[in-house]
Design a protein around this nucleic acid. Sequence first.
DNA 1: TATAAGTTCGA
DNA 2: CGAACTTAT
Length: 438
Amino acid sequence: MTPPAIMWFRRDLRLSDHPALLAAADAGEVLPLFVLDDRLLKPAGEPRRRFLYDCLRALDHDLGGRLHIAHGDPVDIVPKIAGKIGAGSVHVSADTAPYGRERDERVQKALGDIDFVRIGSPYAVTPGRVRKQDGEPYRVFTPFRRAWLDHGWRKPAKSGVDSARWISLKGLKIPAAKSDYPAGEQAALEVWQDFRDGPLADYDTGRDRPDRDGTSHLSAYLRWGCVHPRTLLADLKPGNETFRSELAWREFYADVLWHQPNTARENYDRKFDRFKHDTGKAAQQRFQAWCEGKTGYPVVDAGMRQLLAENWMHNRVRMIVASFLVKDLHVPWWWGARHFMRHLIDGDLASNQHNWQWVAGCGTDAAPYFRIFNPITQGEKFDPNGDYVRKYVPELRGVQGKTVHKLDKLPEEYPAPVVDHAHERQVSLDRYDAIRTT
DNA sequence: TATAAGTTCGA
DNA sequence: CGAACTTAT
């Protein structure tokens, strides 16, 4: 058995916005926001070290957080991490007791009431394991998924033995779409069973409808370690390929970030380093409007307001708002990624940053740059009756049915469009032309 | 996990 | 004439 190493990342949440988070913080002061596999702590070569350094630096510097490390290892890299991140933001709680239950208990006691025990990585297959025959990592999702399936994984551990000990969020209520669903393994399993026996059958199309409840709502549980993906995978049937693929995407992006930790902040496709962004005062104001859900595009605004209200956003809408920020407002993708990480209850560095890169066209296996979402037609297609928009945009509650998507038929108190989509679409295509090398 | 513009085809 | 399909971006 590998010795447990416990790390977590602490960032400054605006706790006043989230009474449930506040209660959890009251219980233990800190929240375990980022948990690493202890194998990454072993001196096993530069790639692992780089992963550790860069993830932590990314989190600390880009997200305004604090790092807190507790461990029993004489791990030689800890001082280096401290040096990288800078004095004052790293607290190391050294504990030299032998590994085992006693040491776990001592560490836990030293760190407060949070039940933080970590076992194993939160992936079916540990990042870095699935490789091409020549040893190189996969850069395209579909072959990765095939190899990942072929690789296989252990059966899930029994409840209460493995996954339940992973991380605990006792007392933490996750403020997501389903109000009042609590944290913890038991709650995660109940959400899973509800989904498995219901919306999963219609997942292919149902997951794209933000006006309905067709997604699994498991993202926060997976991200916080309340449930292990192997538990879900073991429960899936041959017909559930789409949901299995969503889990595969999660593993794929973890693998990509493991191999290239710098891509948490930098373009995976370096050709995009030359891409022209808008970052001046006007762009900052548009970015602000986007953050607040005041762009004048109904689905975009509904999504951004759902994010602020619930710390969660429907996946289809995430794609729409991301496309809008990058391709209609021409803002760097990492601005949007950072905003998401600050607000999403399920925000995961690998999935978040690489899905943003996918939308921006600069990532692994990215969407072709010319795939530009039309925020109006996306709204009409996936929120056909306008129910989603009306739920989150009070100014539009008086507008009937699909009319909420008609920009020229919206009430005066609703913001005018910050930009003209057709024009900005062309601007984006022209800027892409400028960096193309074909 | 796209869109817009153009083309084909049948009612 | 609109739905379905094709194609360039």
